[in-house]
């Protein structure tokens, strides 16, 4: 795997990749259909969508109905993709996704944008720290937290052609480059971005780049940190977690999500059942979201490279 991380921002932004991927999938397969709940403008699908009204269905501000319509479309042979902000794409239509989608085996791909603190100026009402937790409870669901545009370009189409409920959470705006263009990924397999021997940082979404930054700092102090992009939070790559727990003897999880029910708990359950090691976490603890610039929110909720660095040192000291 060709890692090109150097701390620099990507020239592409997520919403453009979401938009171009949807357009490509729809163009290539007459069964792929995209539905939105009045947020096409937010992922740059509006202009194209208005020219393809039979394949880009604007459902209005009615997420529950949108999820149900997607289930009905799936039942007659379509592969629906639905989008809303992560808070509404999970909480607002959870029963519909759970029953009309998961239970009824009507496969659908859900894009929850503005993950966690990325909701920034939309504030606490729009800031999902619990979307992965909800989606993880659906049997056979796939839950992905996107860290990089190259990852999204490869994984998003694979999600669309996978069975079950597939939830892709993502930021909409800028990101730090991680992967070389053309990199191929496997859903359910974590990516080792950096090898190490003293501690393993298991991160997802926007926290992966911060994990890389923390690992660099740790190396300056002689601590060798491995960094894993666990972009598939469900099904979790238990084998890789166990391997790196054995190899490094300490684990730090980092997620732009509540500590309840997200990556940290998924990793903890894996380790508690196989190889308990000292573990620390960087996640949101028992708090709702709030408004502000993303950089402020990252500090406010402790979602920074600095916090990962501190946690890693603590985890190593507990060995």
């Amino acid at each position: 795997m060709d890692i090109i991380y150097n701390g620099e921002k990507d020239t592409k932004i997520f919403k453009d990749v979401i938009s171009s991927t949807i357009q490509k999938l729809v163009a290539e397969d007459e069964n792929v259909i995209y539905l939105d709940a009045d947020l096409m403008s937010c992922i740059n699908t509006l202009k194209w969508g208005r020219q393809h009204r039979d394949r880009a269905i604007d459902c209005g501000i009615a997420e529950s109905n949108m999820a149900g319509v997607a289930a009905g479309l799936a039942a007659v042979g379509f592969r629906p993709i639905i989008h809303s902000f992560g808070c509404f794409a999970s909480r607002r239509c959870f029963d519909q996704v759970f029953l009309s989608g998961g239970y009824a085996k009507n496969d659908m791909t859900i894009i929850g944008s503005d993950a966690g603190v990325c909701a920034a100026m939309n504030g606490g009402t729009h800031m999902p720290f619990e979307d992965m937790a909800l989606m993880r409870t659906i049997p056979d669901a796939t839950v992905v937290d996107i860290s990089d545009n190259v990852l999204m370009e490869d994984v998003f189409p694979k999600l669309v052609y996978r069975s079950g409920v597939k939830y892709m959470r993502t930021a909409r705006k800028e990101s730090i480059k991680l992967y070389a263009p053309g990199t191929v990924f496997e859903i359910g397999k974590g990516n080792v971005l950096r090898d190490g021997t003293d501690v393993t940082i298991v991160a997802c979404g926007i926290m992966v780049a911060k994990g890389m930054e923390a690992a660099q700092r740790l190396s300056q102090e002689g601590i060798s940190a491995a960094v894993i992009d666990m972009f598939t939070v469900k099904p979790i790559d238990a084998e890789l977690i166990e391997k790196y727990a054995a190899k490094t003897g300490a684990v730090v999880c980092a997620e732009n999500h509540s500590v309840n029910g997200g990556l940290t708990e998924a990793v903890a359950r894996t380790l508690i059942e196989s190889r308990p090691v000292p573990m620390e976490h960087v996640a949101v603890d028992e708090r709702f979201g709030q408004v502000g610039p993303q950089s402020f929110l990252e500090e406010e909720y402790g979602l920074t490279a600095e916090h990962i660095y501190e946690c890693a040192k603590r985890a190593v000291s507990r060995k």
């Binding site: 269905i57 529950s64 109905n65 149900g68 319509v69 009905g72 029963d95 519909q96 009309s100």
Partner: peptide
Amino acid sequence: GQGASTAVGMALGE
């Protein structure tokens, strides 16, 4: 309530 949306989705698809 959920059957209503799914039926509507089926009708749309057809």
